[in-house]
Design a protein around this nucleic acid. Structure first.
Lengths: 210, 210
DNA sequence: ATTTGTTTGTGAAATAAATAACAATATGTA
DNA sequence: TACATATTGTTATTTATTTCACAAACAAAT
């Protein structure tokens, strides 16, 4: 079965919310409560949860720990997955800080920069390699996911090199649009585009409900 | 007429691509060519362009300059819109760098931080205010859009304060999910969630076409 | 002049996604 | 025991989005 990007996105969201609940020592939760935390409808939550194959109870809803375990089982490679970060400017550094220690199975294991002062340092357990070693290191560490955090121009060539080194999935923070094979996943996160969208809706969403 | 978020997103993308074409001195473009640049179907491009009310020619397609002008007219407030940036850590700094000089009508006009060493500095024409002045400054400058670039905990309270000061639209880079009135636009950009999604598709998108 | 080839704009059709609806289930209560 | 209440999983329905398909337009070729 092919599962849509939207459903995956929401499952990741539910997982995050369930983690919060777990920390607050909540044991059980109903679909309508999880829905409200996720700003979705209860029906949608139940429908989404069908794909992970965990059944709740009509009396007490979903058991938080169990549901969390099921979602994680569904979403993640048990052996873990490694991520590369290209570009260690302010943005790259922020991403590294932000993601550090947040996920047991997914870790940023290598980063790349051309600045010799940064190369060979280790930040949050992540070694900095020279950009020239991108292919070698990516293959060696069997990295499948990469984050592009360089300002602009050569994003496409970096992306090509990553894909040629075995990467299957990219997050692109550069303003350059990437053209890649169809079986590669790309998430574009152009920051200016986000601001423009927000600006548009600041004007138009004033009265109408979303 | 109510226009979906998806269409707005694509219009912003077309605009960006058209700007590139303009810089390359391309005068006219067909829907199928623009579609290919945007990785969409020609029919979708034509359908999207209906909302901006600019008609192409069956002979030479769309006139790049004219179409660009029409999209901009549709998307932007002619008097310009001001954006606030909350948090001047690595991420905030990256956003400021990245957005500087990219848009004639949308500018990051104020930023907020609690670090006294940063307060009152001016970066890329953007003055840094103390976080305590958030309400006052936001109202004074008539800021409608804000970017939350603080690590975590108090993102909700910052968001509430922004909305109370007239902000209608937020971009949230914090991992905290925000709960706000329905007539406020929020774009969540949790970086870890993006990585998790990419990791999932790195595993599953290996053979099936997207 | 007529034909050929190409493209646009848009109504109609198809596909995808979200919501509604409800049988099945279990609990507590009278 | 029978009844009222609440929730799940899933099918059916509705709504949203995308694609198809084609008339209208028009330049170039015959």
């Amino acid at each position: 079965m092919i599962i849509s990007e939207k459903i995956i996105h929401r499952l990741i969201l539910y997982k995050k919310l369930l983690k919060n609940l777990q920390n607050e020592n909540v044991k059980n939760i109903f679909s309508h409560k999880l829905a409200s935390l996720a700003s979705r409808s209860p029906a949608q939550v139940r429908r989404d949860l069908m794909v992970v194959g965990y059944d709740g109870s009509t009396v007490s809803g979903y058991h938080v720990d169990e549901l969390l375990k099921s979602i994680e089982l569904f979403l993640y490679e048990p052996e873990g997955q490694k991520v590369a970060l290209v570009g260690l400017g302010n943005l790259g550094r922020a991403i590294l800080d932000y993601c550090y220690g947040r996920h047991p199975n997914i870790t940023i294991s290598a980063s790349f920069d051309k600045d010799p002062n940064k190369v060979n340092r280790v930040i949050h357990g992540c070694r900095v390699y020279h950009i020239d070693d991108l292919e070698k290191t990516t293959r060696q560490l069997k990295i499948e996911v990469a984050i592009i955090a360089i300002p602009t121009e050569n994003a496409q060539s970096i992306a090509d090199r990553l894909i040629n080194s075995g990467v299957r999935s990219l997050i692109n923070y550069s303003p350059t649009r990437l053209y890649l094979p169809l079986d590669v996943y790309v998430e574009n996160r152009d920051m200016m585009m986000a601001v423009e969208k927000a600006a548009y809706f600041a004007r138009t969403l004033k009265d109408e409900l979303k």
